[in-house]
Simulated assay, not measured.
Amino acid sequence: MVSNKDGELKMRKYLNYYVRNFDYPLFFTYLFLCLFGLVMIYSSSIMVSIVNEDGTPTYFYRKQLLNLCIAAFAFIVGAFIPYKHFSNKRIMQILTLMVFVLLAWVKIDGIDAGGAKSWINPFGLMNFQPSEFAKLFIILYFAGAFYRKSLNNPMENLEPNNIVYPIIVWLIIIMFVGTETDLGAVLILSGIAVAVVAASGIQFKKFIKFFTVIIGFGSALIGLIILVKGNEILTENRMGRIKSFLNPFEYESGSSYQVINGYIAIGSGGLEGVGLGQSVQKLGYLPEPQTDFIMAIIAEELGILGVIIVLGGLGFIIFRALTIALKTKDPLARMIAAGIGSWIAVQSFVNLGGLSGLIPLTGVTLPFISYGGTSILLLSFAMGILVNVSMYVKLEKKL
């Protein structure tokens, strides 16, 4: 039987280990982006809060502050749970059941927001977006499944047919999310899956074979979804987004209205910006500027410097994640780190690509910066896991 004194000693050693090996640069970059995002959410949402919500300018600011408090707890949980637990088959079975139940819940009783039926409101507590949970789930599920396979058979010897179950699970999730018409999430889920497989250690030729299988199955599934749900997916709003992507200035009073005003915001900011809180485009020209178009407000108010700050912070987190993946000898740690880094990278590209006209708009939020409870909650948990992996890599180097 362990005495209280022994238990306290073990806990003290455990905490000392965390303090010595904690990834402070990663944590403070994450914290800075969250707080910077909070400031910009307040600045960008003042008019929307007054006109559309409770009449006070701090409506979205207060909600995001509460979201960040909950997200801080999620970060701590992710940082202190040893990442090895995510390779446990029973835990993965529970998470698989959870993600399927949540995605099915959307189909049964989902909330339509922004043209996509991708939200639920569990027991009236808060709006929750299961596709965000699916992004983290795919990272952990793929990494855990491939890791367990590699214990009996080296990953480089695995064939695509040896990992058929993860592919099936991924395809089912893609089908659910695709029929929600959340096409941005489909792109991100696809990028995550490819990144985790690439980091698994599978031979390049076999990876290409796997990638071909994914493209084939994915294309067939997308074709089937469009055939069955074409009228719901290819809505006038979505066709308008495609048209505005191809020729935005031809539809500036219609489907390109948001894109054009985003361009105006970016152009107005110039090098130094018009000043924090001084944006004109947030005064009714950009609908919901605190979400997917928040970078346009940052560019307008803080200029190129503000954009560089955000891109630098996101770039550092992505670089850190990929560096951790490259340094570790543990395939599970490598896949988790690469998956989290790719999630942030792909989501940032989809958001900024839509804002700048590189790709059609999808409504995807900018990680850590945009308003959104589900997004910051799951990203914070993922960052906690990444910090945990980073601590293991530091310990691994010392041994």
Rank of each mutant, 00 (worst) to 15 (best):
E8Y: 09
R12T: 12
Y17Q: 12
Y24S: 07
F27S: 04
L35W: 12
L35H: 11
V39P: 00
M47P: 04
I50H: 08
E53P: 01
E53Y: 11
T56W: 05
P57R: 05
L68E: 02
F73R: 07
A74I: 13
V77Q: 08
I81R: 12
F86A: 03
L102C: 06
K107N: 08
A116T: 03
N121C: 10
P122E: 12
G124V: 13
N127V: 03
F128M: 13
Q129N: 14
P130F: 07
S131K: 09
L136M: 14
I138R: 04
N153C: 10
E159K: 13
P166Y: 00
E180S: 14
T181E: 07
G184D: 12
L189M: 15
V194Y: 15
A199Y: 00
S200K: 02
Q203F: 02
F207T: 00
F210P: 00
I222D: 07
G230T: 14
R238Q: 12
G240Y: 04
F245P: 04
S256Y: 01
Q258F: 13
S268H: 06
G269L: 02
G277W: 02
V280M: 05
L286Y: 02
F293G: 01
A296N: 05
A296Q: 10
I297V: 15
L302I: 06
G303Y: 05
G306V: 03
F316E: 05
T323P: 03
I324G: 00
I324S: 01
K327M: 11
P331V: 04
M335A: 08
S342W: 09
N351Y: 09
P360C: 13
P360V: 09
I369G: 01
S370F: 07
G373N: 12
T374G: 15
G384A: 09
G384E: 14
N388S: 06
E396T: 10
